[in-house]
């Protein structure tokens, strides 16, 4: 059976494969090539996908809970996927679709997300320290308590986003759209807000 062979690490090269709803819970899939594969609804929870090639893969509604996803995800579709607690440190997620994805407590430190779409994503408590978030769409996203310190948020769309208690220390928010965003008790020391739109933004208790 092909699935067992993949799980056992015997098959490593599967670009464009159709693995919809496949079960890879806890599997060691380091370095696997699944670029452009159909992985809709697949379950990779607690699997190890370090250095895997997932460029352009369709991971819509996939389960990636606690997964080591320090992988190549350029242009991947992760819409509605569950990435709770996933490890995405330093990953390339440029142009990826993460609309309404669940990213609670996920680690994105140093990741590259420029041009990604995170509209209405749930990033509560996520670690985005030093991440490249230039031009990312975070409209309506929930970033309660997220750590965005020293992240590059140039031109980011954060309208109606929840940034309550978020850490934006040293972050670059030049030209960001924060219309109607909630920054209650957020940390903004050393943040660059040049040209940012703060119309209707709640900044109570924020440390500027």
């Amino acid at each position: 059976m092909e699935l067992n062979a993949i799980r056992d690490g015997k098959i490593k090269c599967l670009p464009g494969a159709d693995l919809e709803d496949a079960d890879f819970v806890g599997a060691d899939l380091r370095g696997i090539n699944l670029a452009g594969a159909n992985l809709t609804g697949a379950n990779f929870s607690r699997a190890n996908l370090e250095r895997a090639h997932l460029e352009g893969a369709n991971l819509m509604a996939a389960q990636l809970i606690g997964t080591d996803l320090r992988a190549h995800l350029l242009g991947a579709n992760l819409m509605q996927a569950d990435l709770t607690g996933a490890d995405l440190r330093g990953s390339n997620l440029r142009g990826a679709n993460l609309m309404t994805a669940k990213l609670i407590q996920a680690s994105f430190a140093g990741a590259f997300l420029s041009g990604a779409n995170l509209t209405n994503g749930n990033l509560q408590g996520a670690d985005l320290r030093g991440a490249d978030l230039r031009g990312v769409n975070l409209t309506g996203a929930n970033l309660l308590g997220a750590d965005l310190s020293y992240a590059d948020l140039t031109g980011v769309l954060l309208n109606q986003a929840n940034l309550e208690e978020a850490d934006l220390q040293g972050a670059n928010l030049a030209g960001a759209n924060l219309t109607g965003a909630n920054l209650l008790c957020a940390e903004l020391a050393g943040a660059n807000l040049t040209g940012a739109n703060l119309t209707g933004t709640c900044l109570l208790g924020a440390a500027v």
């Binding site: 806890g26 606690g66 609670i104 407590q105 309660l144």
Partner: peptide, 25 residues
């Protein structure tokens, strides 16, 4: 080093016990 007072909200995840599989890894 980024020495900052603890941000507790983001600390909540820390409370979750990892699965046995993760410890193994």
């Amino acid at each position: 080093l980024p020495i900052a007072p603890p941000k507790i909200t983001s600390g909540i995840w820390l409370l979750d016990t990892p699965q046995a599989a993760e410890i193994h890894t």
